[in-house]
Simulated scan of single mutants.
Amino acid sequence: MPLPPHALATVAERRGVDARAFQQEILPAGQPVILRGLVDDWPAVQRGQASARSVCEYLMEFYQGKVVPLLIGDPAARRHIFYQDLMAGLNFERRPATIFDGMRLLLGQLDEADAPAIYMESLPVADCLPGFAAAHAMPLLGNAVSPNIWIGNAVKVQTHFDLKLNLACLVAGKRRFTLFPPDQLPNLYVGPLDFTPAGTPLSMVTLDNPDLARYPRFQQALDAAQVADLEPGDALYIPYAWWHHVESLEPFNILVNYWWTQTQSPVHNYDALLHAVLAFRDMPAEQRQFWRQMFDYFVFETGGEALGHLAPEHRGHLGPVTPEKLAAIKAMLAESLGRR
C-alpha cells in the first residue's frame, strides 16, 4: 500500500520571496519550493474566494470567444486522466468548445459526485483571455514568460514531467502535487514516448492504489517523494524534469502556470533520444559502454569541457553553434537517416 500523504516528505515552504531570492536562491538549488501567498493579491484569487461563479464571471471579462479543447473523461475512470484498460486508448476525449461553455458545464455539475472529468488544460492566456496577464503580474519572472490557465473539476493528472521549469499558481480550489526527483525514472515504470495523453510519458503506476507486486520499485519512488498541498494564492516551483502527480481536491479548480527554459535546444530532445535508441540500444554491452563514455565526454561533459584543449574554431561540429553550422548538421543528419 502507498504511504499516506502525511507520511511523505513535504516540500519546503517560503514566504515573501522576491525576484532576487527566486533567481539567486531557489532556482540554483534545483528543489521544489512552495511559495505561500505569492499571488494572494491577484483579483482572480480574490474572486475565487467568493465563489466559483464569481471567478468565472470575472474571467469572462477577458474572454473574446476563443474556441479551446475541452477534455471530457469517461465517468467510469473517476476523473483520473489516464489510459483505458490494456492501453486500448485514452480514457477521455477532447472536443472543441468555448471557455464559456466549459465553465457553464463545470458550474452545472459542482454537486454531482459522479460527474466525469471536465478539464480545459494548458490554455495560453494571451490567446484565450487577453488582458488577464496584465491584470495579474508575476514579478518573479517579468513579462517575458506568458502564462497558461487550467480550469476543471476534481481531476487526477497522472505522474509526468515537463522539459521546462514550472511555476504553478493556484487561483481557486485546492491542489495536491506529489513530486519525484528526476533520478526516480527507473522506479516509476514509464509508459511509451509516442502514445501519451499530453505529449510527455507517464508513470504507469497509479498513486492512490499502486500495485507493488507488479511495480515493486515504486516503493523506492515513494520514499523519495515530496508532497505539496496548495491553497488559493499559493504557488509551487517545479524544477526541470521533476515528475509530478497533480490532484485537484475540490469540485472547481483554476490554476495558472508559467513554463520557461534557460536554454533553447535547436533540435527536439525526444528526437535526439529516439535517434540514440536506434543507434545504440541493440549494440553489445561493451560497445554501448564505449558510447556511454563518448556521450559523457562530448555531450554531458562530465570530465570538463569537451575538446577544451582545442581552439573553438578547430572543434568542427562540436564547436560553437552558428546558424550555418546548425543547417549543415541538420542536412547531414537528414541525409544519414534517409540512407538507412
Rank of each mutant, 00 (worst) to 15 (best):
M103S: 10
S122K: 03
R95Y: 04
L105W: 07
V125I: 14
G89P: 10
L140R: 11
R104W: 05
A137L: 12
A137Y: 03
P139L: 06
A126T: 04
E93Y: 06
V125M: 04
H80M: 07
L129F: 14
F100R: 15
A135Y: 05
A97I: 05
V145M: 05
D127W: 00
H80Q: 13
P139F: 00
I99P: 11
C128H: 05
S122I: 02
R94V: 13
G89H: 08
G131F: 06
M103G: 05
I118E: 01
M120I: 12
A88H: 14
G89F: 08
W150H: 05
S122R: 02
A115N: 07
L106G: 04
P124T: 06
I118H: 06
P130L: 01
F82P: 01
M87A: 12
M138V: 04
D114K: 10
L110M: 14
A115L: 00
F132S: 01
D127V: 02
F132H: 04
H80P: 02
P139Q: 03
P116K: 12
L129I: 09
R95I: 13
D85P: 09
Y119D: 07
G131M: 05
R79P: 12
I99A: 15
M120E: 02
D114E: 14
A126H: 02
A88C: 07
A88V: 00
I81V: 15
S122Y: 02
P124F: 05
D74L: 11
P116R: 12
V125S: 03
A126F: 00
G102M: 11
H80E: 13
I149S: 01
H136D: 03
D111G: 07
F92V: 06
Y119W: 14
M103Q: 08
A97D: 12
D127E: 15
Y83Q: 09
G108C: 09
D111M: 05
A97H: 04
L141R: 03
C128Y: 00
L107Y: 07
G89R: 09
L90D: 09
R104V: 12
P116W: 11
E121H: 03
L90K: 15
A126Q: 09
E93N: 02
L129K: 02
L86F: 10
A117Q: 08
T98S: 15
L123Q: 14
P75A: 11
N91T: 04
A144N: 13
M120C: 14
A135W: 01
L129S: 05
V145R: 03
V125F: 03
F92H: 14
S146V: 04
Q84F: 00
D74H: 02
A77N: 05
L110E: 10
D74T: 06
V125A: 15
L141S: 12
N91W: 03
L90Q: 11
L123K: 10
Y83D: 13
M87Q: 12
P124R: 01
G142I: 00
L141W: 08
P124A: 07
